[in-house]
């Protein structure tokens, strides 16, 4: 009886000490308010690498500051913003003639979430455009990972998703890996 009581005490003390240790660990929890609905705790410096879209001398990376992109590209043809459920900040969509850029907010700054190419007047730096064939794509990017009717390529914090209708590319999207 006495031994089991000691065991209980010892276990409880250990549990408390472990909890204290965990509480005091000071690990970086980012924005710990639980209110930040954006999942992307992304290292921005590291993220400006990977696949990118180039247009008119401007390279657009996912996780890049939208402010920088806007200063190069100018105003879009159409702009849409929406406050999603429980979000602080706005999700924004900038529609240009041949591509669409979506952003996400983090600490009052908008970053590029995705770039979608919409017609064959633009192409990736590797030469792939809407209408390219599957073999063009695999020659340019390799086999990729199949997902439904798409081939998906991941590099650093970027993902390139190329969707096919039969043998022909119907959609090209750069997106941030979260």
């Amino acid at each position: 009886m006495k031994k089991s009581f000691k065991k209980v005490i010892l276990t409880a003390v250990c549990a408390c000490m472990m909890a204290f240790t965990a509480v005091g660990c000071g690990g970086d929890s980012g924005s710990d308010t639980g209110n930040n609905a954006q999942t992307g705790q992304i290292d921005k410096a590291e993220s400006l690498s990977g696949y990118y879209f180039a247009t008119g001398g401007t390279n657009i990376y996912v996780n890049q500051k939208m402010e920088d992109v806007l200063s190069s590209l100018g105003e879009p043809v159409q702009y849409f913003e929406s406050e999603s459920c429980a979000y602080q900040g706005m999700d924004k969509t900038y529609t240009y003639n041949s591509f669409i850029i979506k952003t996400y907010p983090e600490n009052d700054v908008d970053y590029v979430l995705s770039v979608s190419l919409r017609d064959d007047t633009v192409q990736t730096p590797e030469g792939i455009a809407i209408g390219s064939s599957k073999s063009d794509v695999t020659t340019a990017y390799g086999a990729g990972e199949e997902s439904g009717s798409a081939l998906v390529y991941t590099k650093d914090q970027s993902r390139l998703t190329i969707i096919f209708d039969g043998d022909s590319v119907t959609s090209i999207e750069y997106s941030a890996v979260q």
């Binding site: 849409f80 529609t95 009717s149 798409a150 998703t161 959609s171």
Partner: peptide, 14 residues
């Protein structure tokens, strides 16, 4: 209601 952007094309609608 605003002008919604064009919906994304999906790889799989299932």
């Amino acid at each position: 209601e605003g002008d919604f952007p064009e919906p994304d094309i999906l790889a799989d609608y299932t």
